[in-house]
Amino acid sequence: MNWKNVDSNALAENLHPKHDKYFLKDLVVKADSGLLSVHRGRIEPGGEIFVHTHEVESETFYILSGRLECTMGDEKIAYAAGNCGFAPPGIPHGLRNTGDVPAELIAIFTPPLK
């Protein structure tokens, strides 16, 4: 069995090309597991993961720090550190940083996003 140890603090982050002030680090990708992908994200103040859907993947996201407004379907929900959200395929969802410090999160996709 293959296994992987990832120090997310040592990885370079990339600006997401489709969202605003959203930076990503890919921790586990399809080539690693085939079952899921895990990503660490940072949304700068005023930044946003625009509302979007995934046709195949379910997305679970866990907020590590910061304050966010989560759009889930037609609802808007305040999220803070310790909150966890789940968006099944086809459900519109997004996150907007409503605080004055960066917000950090972990996003898990099943099946893997990339």
Rank of each mutant, 00 (worst) to 15 (best):
D7S: 08
A107L: 11
I91G: 14
V101G: 10
G82T: 07
E75A: 15
G85H: 06
R42N: 00
E44R: 03
D7W: 02
E13V: 07
D26I: 15
I77R: 06
T71F: 07
L95V: 11
L95N: 08
F61L: 10
G94Y: 06
T53Q: 13
G73Q: 07
A103G: 03
A107S: 13
T53R: 14
E55L: 11
G94L: 08
P111A: 00
G46V: 04
P111R: 00
S58V: 05
N83V: 10
M72C: 14
P17N: 11
P89N: 05
P45L: 02
G34T: 02
P17F: 05
P112W: 04
N2A: 08
A107F: 11
N83S: 10
E55R: 14
T71Q: 11
L36V: 04
G94W: 05
P45C: 06
N83A: 15
V38P: 01
V38H: 02
V51I: 11
L105N: 04
N83L: 08
A81S: 15
A103W: 07
P45R: 01
H93T: 03
S37Q: 03
K21I: 01
T110W: 05
R96F: 12
C70G: 10
L95G: 07
F23I: 05
A87N: 02
A80R: 14
S33P: 06
P45E: 05
G46S: 03
D20R: 14
E69G: 05
A31T: 09
K21R: 08
G90L: 09
E59A: 00
N83T: 10
K76W: 15
P89W: 06
T110A: 09
F61V: 07
E57Q: 15
I77N: 03
I63T: 02
E57M: 09
R42I: 06
L24V: 09
F61M: 09
A81T: 00
D26W: 09
